[in-house]
């Protein structure tokens, strides 16, 4: 008996809450809502995603993974081993590395490796 009453109270409260929330929703809809669908995150690009020695050896794998997961599965946030978050973008790298115009090119010309990134993307040499 008692539990049935409780259930009723609970149901009515839930309905009221729903109605109130709906009113708020409508109120929000009057100001054009941004297209955000998920909560956003704090992103940092003031320091490198990994130690320089690791990046020197593995940047190609990292970039390959970034490229595939951001373009194809839409997962644009990279979580580094220490938990900090970065946007998967070459521009994240350029955030710091554009300070050296020869950043990519010095090593690549030494190693005679010719990646095609800069056919489309900005290179440190082209950053404004």
């Amino acid at each position: 008996m008692m539990s049935k009453k409780l259930l009723w109270i609970f149901a009515v409260t839930a309905m009221m809450l729903f109605a109130v929330l709906n009113v708020f929703r409508k109120g929000e809809a009057e100001t054009p809502p941004p297209l955000s669908v998920h909560k956003s995150v704090a992103i940092d690009s003031s320091k490198c995603i990994a130690p320089a020695s690791f990046m020197r050896a593995n940047h190609m794998q990292v970039l390959y993974e970034w490229r595939n997961s951001s373009v194809r599965t839409g997962n644009r946030v990279y979580i580094a081993s220490n938990g900090s978050k970065y946007e998967k973008s070459l521009n994240t790298c350029l955030g710091c590395h554009s300070n050296n115009r020869l950043f990519c090119f010095n090593c690549h010309s030494y190693a005679n490796v010719k990646p095609k990134c800069w056919n489309c993307h900005l290179s440190p040499m082209e950053t404004p």
Binding site: I43, N75, V77, T127, P128
Partner: peptide, 18 residues
């Protein structure tokens, strides 16, 4: 610093896998 309009790291709206 030259006047700089390069896309800086921007907060992506999608955090988790969609």
């Amino acid at each position: 610093v030259p006047a700089f309009s390069l896309e800086k790291t921007v907060l992506p709206v999608w955090d988790e896998k969609p």
